[in-house]
Design a protein around this nucleic acid. Sequence first.
DNA 1: GTGAAAGCGCTAACAC
DNA 2: GTGTTAGCGCTTTCAC
Lengths: 344, 344
Amino acid sequence: MPKATIDDVADLAGVSIKTVSRVINREPNVRQSTREKVDRAITKLRYRPNQSARSLASHRSRLIVLVYDDPGEYEVPSGGFVIRMQQGALRACKSANFNLLIHPCNYRDKHVTDELQGLIERTRPDGVVLAAPLSNMPRLVNAIAATNTPLVRLSPGRSKGQEFAVGTDDRRVCAEMTRHLASLGHSRIAFITGHRNHKAVANRFLGYKDGLRQSDLDFDESLVAAGDNSLRSGHAAAEKLLALDPRPTAIFAANDDMAAGVIHVANRLGIDIPGELSVAGFDDGALAQQIYPALTTVRQPLSAMAEHASAALIDEAGKPQIERETEVIPATLKIRESTGPAPA
Amino acid sequence: MPKATIDDVADLAGVSIKTVSRVINREPNVRQSTREKVDRAITKLRYRPNQSARSLASHRSRLIVLVYDDPGEYEVPSGGFVIRMQQGALRACKSANFNLLIHPCNYRDKHVTDELQGLIERTRPDGVVLAAPLSNMPRLVNAIAATNTPLVRLSPGRSKGQEFAVGTDDRRVCAEMTRHLASLGHSRIAFITGHRNHKAVANRFLGYKDGLRQSDLDFDESLVAAGDNSLRSGHAAAEKLLALDPRPTAIFAANDDMAAGVIHVANRLGIDIPGELSVAGFDDGALAQQIYPALTTVRQPLSAMAEHASAALIDEAGKPQIERETEVIPATLKIRESTGPAPA
DNA sequence: GTGAAAGCGCTAACAC
DNA sequence: GTGTTAGCGCTTTCAC
C-alpha cells in the first residue's frame, strides 16, 4: 500500500485538498464538522504530510540546526556540554513538531563558512542556534547572517550583534563562587582561565576578580594559570599552581574538565581534597558527579538556554524577525564535596 | 538578490536544466566542456540545490536519523556514549553530503512507536540507525521496519532480525579482560551486570564467565551484583560487593559509569585503587580518563560502529536493500591506572 | 467556509 | 550527449 497523500484524504473526506491543508495547518475558517470529517480520514489512512512537499511550497522546513565547536579527533570529547544543549533544543523542537539537525564544525578549518552556508542553503532551516565559542566569532556569525536565516547565539559573551542571544550571568555567579570560597576561610584562591576565544568564559575570570575584591582579597597574578577548557590543560595548570609556595588552598577552574584535571594532579601528589585543597569548577555536566570527590561547581543552565534559543526561532518561523534583548538565564552554585574550610 | 535556482544556472550556462541536474548529480554522459560551463555558472551564482525540491522529486532525502535511548530528565546524562555514536554517524554523513537528524526517545513511553513512525513518514530519511538497547526491542524494530525505511541496528546482541547490524565482540573482549585480571593474580574477581534490556551488555557477563573458566577460576554467584548502567547503580553494587568478607580484589563493571561508582565508594571507604582493589569498566568514553585513577576499560568502537552503520545506509540509499552479515568491529583492552597486581 | 488553479525547484522517463 | 515534458505533494493566491 503506497503512502497516503493529501488527495487520498480529500477524497475520503469528500472535501478539497485545500480544506485538508487547512486542517493539518490548524488554520481558522473550517467548520467544526468538516474538521472532524477530515481528521477521521487522516486517522483512517494514517496520513502524514510529506515534509519535503510542505517545505518546497511554504518555504518553511520545520528544521532547526544546532552548530557547535568540534574539537576534532585529537581530543577526547567530553560531550557533556553538547549533550545538554541538544537536550534543550530537542525539547523545544519536539513540542512544536520540528526536527533538529546537528552540525559540529571546526572553526580552525578554512572552509567552515562555506560548509555552513552550503548546509543552510540546501536544507533551508527555519533557524540556526550557534553555540559558544563559535557564537563570538564574527566570521561565522556573519556567514550565517548572510544567508538570511534567523540566528540565535548562545553565550556570546558580549552582545555586540543585533541578533537575539541567550546566555547566563557568568560574571555574577563566579563572583558568588569566589565569595563562597573566601567565606570558607580561603585567602589564596587560584583561578584557571579557559578557552581564549570564548568570551563568556573570559567573563568568569572577571567574576573571580570581582569576588576577590568583594571579599577584600588582593588579586595575585601568580595565582592565575591559563587553560583551554580541556582536561589536559587542567593538568598543566594544576601542576603549576600546586608547585607554588605557599600553595593556594583553593583552585577555581573556569570549567569542570579543567577542575577534573586539578583533582587528578592533587590525588597524584597526595594532596587531600577538600582537606588541604578545595576545588571548584563550572558547568555541572555529568562529570561533576562522576568524579571523586563530587565537584563543587556552577550549574550552567545550558539546556534551558538552548531550549529558549530554539523556541524563539520556532516561534518566529515565518514571521518577521522580532527585536529582542539578550536573554540571561541565571546560573547557580552547586556545593558538593570538593570544597571545604581552608586548612588551619 | 533571491536565491539562484536551477533555471538560472541553465540560462547562464546556456544549457537545459536537465543538463545542470546531470552535473550536480554527477551523472555520466555529459561532455567535459559542458560540465565545466555548468560548474562555472554554479560557482558564479553560488547556486545550491534546494534539498526539499530534490527530495520531493527523487524520493531521497539525504537524511539519516539516529535513534537512541533517552534516559529522561531524572538521570544525569553522561552522554559519552551518545556523543561518540553521533561523531561516527556525522563522519559518514559529512563525506556523502548527507545530514543527520538525532532522535532520542524513551522506550518506556507508550507513544514511541507512533512518534518514530511519524518522524520517519514526515521526513522520509534514507535510513535509520537504531542504537542499543532500543536495537533489541522488537516493538521498535518492527515499527521502523513497517515504514519500509532501511534500518541498521547497533549492538543488537543477538542478530535475530534480517536487517543489517553492526556490533562489537563484547563477549570475547570481556573474557580477555577477565583473563587479564586473573593474570595479575586476582582470584576474587567480581562483576557488575548492566541494563536488563541490553543484550550486548548481557554478553559481557557471559564473557566474564568465559574468562573465569579459561583462567581456571570458579564462578561465584555472590561476586555478582546487578546494575543498570547508571553511576548510581554502580554505587549500590559496590557497597554490596565491598562489604563482602573476604572482599573481592577486583571489580569488573559492565560499563564505565558503574565503574566510576565503584571508585567513588572505594575512595569513601578508604580502599586504595589499585593497591587494594582493581577496577575495570567498559566503553572508554571521556569519563575513563577524567576520573582518578584513570580507568582500565574496554574500548568499545562506538564511533566506528555508527560510522559503518550510517555509511551502509548511505551507500544503499535508492538501491535495493543488500543482504549483509552482521558486522563485528573488535573491541580492545585499555589498560590504565585503576588495575594492578592483586594484593598479597 | 470552501475550492480551483498555479507553482515551489527539482528529477524521471523518454525523446531526439 | 542533451532537451522536453510531466509530475513529486504540498501551500499560495484568489475566486466564490
